[in-house]
């Protein structure tokens, strides 16, 4: 899902940075002291998840754990994803530094959206099946939203990317299902084993 350096237009890069700066500032403000180590743990998971490849047909893609980031960290997902993507750009050469704002926005805003939509219901629900279902939907939706935002950035830069956008969305449907399943199992387990993580 990383957009490489040199593809997006200046306007989109600036828009991405504006959204990311606002998100990171609010995220830092809303992250309480006791959540710092938790944020670091999930930032590390996100940082390493890109190295775990999932083969889908002739190609492959990697896990992102966008939804668990949002459901566990809330607003804190923005600074966590920003730091993880910054280190991925420097150490792995994924994405780039100029496009970091757009990439952070494309991945952190779905995390925040699923937190705002599903966070409260998942925390308050006592039914295991409903927690699992909601987490699955959150996980799948976050991936589709992330791909859609990345696709929108590409489409607004150049209309020639429209075919690429269709392929991008199609390629992320299997990943959405995998991430949905991973999110469902992780959140259900956390709700049982360490419910304080979701507070």
């Amino acid at each position: 899902m990383h957009i490489s350096e040199g593809i997006l237009s200046t306007q989109i890069l600036i828009t991405g940075w504006a959204g990311t700066c606002a998100g990171v500032a609010l995220g830092l403000k809303k992250t309480s002291d006791y959540k710092i180590v938790r944020t670091a743990l999930l930032a590390s998971t996100f940082f390493l998840a890109s190295l775990v490849n999932v083969r889908i047909g002739p190609g492959s893609t990697h896990l992102s754990f966008i939804a668990p980031m949002g459901l566990i960290l809330g607003w804190g997902a923005f600074p966590a994803i920003f730091v993880a993507l910054l280190l991925q750009a420097i150490l792995f050469h994924f994405g780039g530094l100029l496009v970091l704002g757009a990439n952070t926005f494309a991945m952190a805003s779905p995390a925040l959206v699923v937190y705002l939509i599903f966070g409260k219901s998942i925390r308050e629900s006592q039914n295991k099946i409903s927690v699992m279902t909601l987490s699955f939907i959150a996980g799948a939706l976050a991936v589709i939203m992330g791909a859609s935002i990345a696709g929108a950035f590409l489409g607004l830069t150049d209309k020639n990317f429209l075919t690429a956008i269709k392929l991008l969305l199609a390629a992320h449907i299997p990943l959405a299902l995998i991430e949905g399943a991973a999110t469902a199992f992780l959140i259900t387990w956390l709700k049982k084993a360490a419910p304080e993580f979701l507070k």
Binding site: V37, A40, L48, L91
Partner: peptide, 21 residues
């Protein structure tokens, strides 16, 4: 590099935490 990245994230977090205390 992956190890370095994880180490940097946790060191950074602990630094912030110690400052917050």
């Amino acid at each position: 590099r992956a190890l370095l990245g994880v180490s940097l994230i946790f060191n950074f977090a602990l630094l912030i935490k110690s400052h917050a205390h």
